[in-house]
C-alpha cells in the first residue's frame, strides 16, 4: 500500500494536527458526507486584518478525509481570506500526492468543502463548479 496510504497521509491520520476546536471562533462550520459518514467540524479565529490567527477542527471518517483535513488546516494560519478563496481541488490533490478515484475524491475534498462553505458559503464540491 505504498501509493494511497503513503507515510505522510498515515502520519496525519495517526497524529492529526490542530485537531481541537478553537473558541471563540469567527468561522464555525460543520458538514458530513452522507454517503460515507465522514464528518468535519472546522473553527477559525481571524485577526483584525482578516488573517487566520488560529484554527482547530474535529471530525471522524476515513484516513483520506481525516489526513486531508489535518494537512490542509494546519497550513491556514497566517493566510488571508483571499488566499483561502484561491485554494482549489488541484492544491488538495497535490498536497496529498496520491492518485484518487472518483469515489475517494470526495473523501479528500470534504475538508476543502467545509472550509469554503464556512468562509464563503460556497456549498458545491470543489471542482464541480468548473465541470
Amino acid at each position: 500500500m505504498d501509493d494511497l496510504y503513503r507515510e505522510m497521509i498515515l502520519d496525519h491520520y495517526r497524529n492529526p494536527q490542530k485537531k481541537q476546536l478553537v473558541s471563540p471562533a469567527d468561522i464555525d462550520y460543520a458538514e458530513d458526507n452522507p454517503l460515507c459518514g465522514d464528518f468535519i467540524h472546522l473553527t477559525i479565529q481571524l485577526d483584525e486584518n482578516k488573517v487566520v490567527k488560529d484554527v482547530g477542527w474535529e471530525g471522524n471518517g476515513c484516513a483520506i478525509s481525516q489526513a486531508s483535513a489535518s494537512m490542509l488546516y494546519e497550513t491556514l494560519i497566517g493566510k488571508t481570506l483571499d488566499e483561502i478563496r484561491s485554494i482549489g481541488k488541484d492544491d488538495i490533490l497535490e498536497m496529498l500526492g496520491v492518485p484518487l478515484g472518483p469515489v475517494r475524491l470526495k473523501c479528500a475534498l470534504l475538508s476543502l468543502k467545509v472550509l469554503k462553505a464556512g468562509a464563503y458559503g460556497l456549498h458545491a464540491w470543489p471542482g464541480e463548479e468548473d465541470e
Binding site: L4, Y5, C36, G37, N60, G61, C62, I64, R104
Partner: peptide
C-alpha cells in the same frame, strides 16, 4: 477503521 479504508486496502 473506516470501512472505506478497509475496502481500499482489500481492493489493493
Amino acid at each position: 477503521i473506516h470501512p472505506h479504508d478497509i475496502a481500499e486496502v482489500l481492493n489493493h
